[in-house]
Design a protein around this nucleic acid. Structure first.
Lengths: 150, 150
DNA sequence: TATTGTTATACTCTATAACTATA
DNA sequence: TATAGTTATAGAGTATAACAATA
């Protein structure tokens, strides 16, 4: 008996494509923002603190990173001169993360690079198709899905 | 000046959603097939060898894994009793990977679990929308994109 | 006693280099 | 000389546990 037990090419399954494409997009963005000396997570943190005053703990909740990772990310932002830790005025346990002028400038550059990378990624689609894709993907991103993650 | 330099919520950007959703889908599949004792890569290898006779090297080319990872994956398939290494009749350097009856049975079970997980993932979409999404994602998965990956 | 930030540590994944046996 | 498989090892990424300061 030589009939395939299971469809051989899960390459065409939506789930498979989604996983692979997500990974590829991650690498693409990583490469795109490399000139800034940052990685996507640094940019995400900078994005949050550009208008709000947030502690590391609050940034953890917003980004889903854990405390120890956040320490490293803020360390690196400080080393790059893109953010500083300051004592919270209300709770002396907390340390507030504040962007420097250089950090804000780097954020603008990074956002531009990411936008370019996204354009490259979505190049095969028309503007209407991009909106369609964004809408469909957004609907998959349910609390239900997030609930079963670690 | 308190105006956001950069849109604060890249959460709505297609690239961001794609990366996050891909990661979530990966975890979902990982969890779904856990009852089989396998991980998605084992299942992928089993899927390839169910009808073809392939060496580890050939499996590397098909899956994109490197040699050392493939050794580990085949080791684990052997330990589970789902595949065996056999000497190639044409080239004694090569070792051909062959599924056992138990391996084929496990593959069927795994494929079913993955299908269920995919249904769960795509539950928010209608059948027509799923086809649409599959088509759009497929078009993003270009050789161009794969070329800029490591 | 609980929480914030921190450090040290362990664990997983993957990649690199070196070895063997065959070609 | 090059290739297939293997092993050992190192590196990055992430998670866990324990600690200091403060609530």
């Amino acid at each position: 008996m030589n009939t395939p037990v299971v469809e051989e090419r899960m390459e065409s399954a939506t789930g498979f494509i989604l996983v692979k494409l997500g990974g590829a997009a991650g690498v693409l963005f990583e490469q795109a923002v490399r000139p800034t000396g940052m990685r996507p997570r640094h940019i995400r943190v900078l994005g949050y603190v550009q208008t709000q005053t947030l502690s590391q703990q609050e940034l953890c909740q917003l980004t889903g990173m854990d405390r120890t990772t956040m320490v490293a990310v803020v360390d690196e932002l400080e080393r790059l001169g893109h953010a500083r830790r300051e004592a919270s005025s209300t709770d002396r346990r907390k340390r507030v993360v504040t962007p420097t002028p250089a950090g804000l400038k780097a954020l603008v550059q990074a956002a531009d690079l990411m936008k370019q990378a996204e354009s490259q990624l979505l190049a095969p689609l028309s503007a209407a198709e991009r909106r369609q894709l964004n809408k469909l993907l957004g609907r998959l991103f349910t609390p239900d899905l997030l609930a079963c993650l670690p």
